[in-house]
């Protein structure tokens, strides 16, 4: 699939929105305005943009800890309120979960975001149920879960692939293979460094793609989503990519590896080159996209910082449906 310039520019904007989001968030985290833990997805923007481009609000996705980008894109595209993902990360009342979920548990069913589960991979079991319900109701929807390479070690990975294949469920597995789980290289902890090798035995289509080439990632998702919507069962996609973030801070990976991914195979640089190579986009206009998204993210951050903290009544709200829990 070759994307036209219009599509390329849209995706480039989405990718920049993700990068600006993550860098803005990291800056605020270092200042201490963002509580908790932070896993930023810089370097993986193309996979996030490719998924966001194809998932409808009536589909669902279970984002993992490195999916702020996908969450923000879905929120912005389908509800025009990307700033509410930002506010959630700041623990504010205006966040998508009123500040009770944070980075690791943001959800908004209205845009198809079914929430992260910070116990990595647990939602690989949950996604089966959504897919089963839709299949039972003959609804041609896609139930997607985004997992990292490290998450493949969970038992749920195997339980999930087995059942999705056996029951022919409309599940899209989007595996973001960035080479490491915290500090452990994928090949050091799995029987194959290529996750598709582990998935193939379950008999579903398994495709590996360069996750930093937006055109390839986009086309791969289009193919997978088409397959699932046509009622042909689950689909496994592995995006080969790399995250800029080391283990929280510090760099443990070889310098030549870092150089390759950051300088030669950066998804944004690659996309920019592609756009300019068409000869139909002015460099200044392309640079403007970067500046615009950065400004947009600053507005989101301001929105988050200006938002109220959750009220005390929220502490005991929604533990049970219909039953109150004692407050202090």
């Amino acid at each position: 699939m070759v994307l036209d310039l219009e599509q390329l520019l849209d995706l480039y904007r989405d990718m920049w929105l993700v990068r600006a989001f993550e860098f803005g968030l990291e800056r605020e985290f270092k200042k201490g305005t963002v509580p908790g833990m932070l896993h930023i997805g810089v370097g993986q923007e193309a996979t996030q943009a490719a998924l966001a481009a194809h998932l409808e609000p009536t589909d669902c996705f279970f984002p993992d800890h490195r999916c702020h980008g996908l969450n923000a894109l879905a929120q912005e595209k389908h509800a025009g309120s990307g700033q509410r993902i930002m506010a959630e990360l700041f623990g504010r009342a205006t966040g998508v979960c009123g500040g009770k979920g944070g980075s690791l548990h943001s959800a908004d069913p209205a845009v198809g975001n079914f929430g992260d589960n910070a116990v990595e991979g647990s939602f690989m079991a949950t996604v089966l149920g959504v897919a089963l319900a839709w299949k039972m109701r003959r609804q041609a929807r896609v139930a997607c879960c985004v997992i990292g390479d490290g998450t493949v070690g969970r038992g749920e990975f195997h339980e999930s692939l087995n059942l999705a294949a056996t029951w022919q469920l409309p599940v899209l597995y989007a595996c973001v293979n960035n080479g490491y789980a915290i500090s452990t290289a994928v090949g050091a902890s799995h029987a194959s460094a290529n996750i598709v090798d582990l998935a193939r035995g379950y008999g579903l289509p398994c495709v590996q793609v360069d996750g930093n080439e937006i055109e390839l990632a986009y086309a791969a998702v289009a193919q997978a989503v088409g397959h699932i919507r046509a009622g042909r069962g689950p689909y496994f996609l592995e995006f080969k990519t790399w995250r800029w973030q080391g283990i929280f801070s510090g760099e443990f990976r070889p310098p030549e590896e870092v150089k390759y991914w950051k300088e030669e195979h950066d998804p944004l640089k690659l996309a920019r080159q592609k756009i300019l190579a068409t000869g139909r986009a002015a460099e200044a206009a392309v640079d403007q996209i970067e500046a615009d998204t950065k400004a947009q993210i600053e507005r989101w951050i301001q929105f988050a910082l200006a938002s109220p903290m959750p009220g005390a009544e929220k502490a005991t709200a929604n533990v049970y449906v219909g039953w109150e829990v004692a407050s202090r």
């Binding site: 089966l128 149920g129 959504v130 319900a133 039972m136 038992g155």
Partner: peptide, 28 residues
């Protein structure tokens, strides 16, 4: 078989499936 569904020995998947389907309105 649709509504009385045999599963493999996958207890996590059994409960996960139940939860996911309940999130979209089923009563498993």
């Amino acid at each position: 078989a649709e509504r009385v569904r045999d599963t493999p020995l996958s207890e996590a998947a059994i409960i996960g499936t139940a939860v996911g389907s309940a999130m979209v309105g089923m009563r498993p």
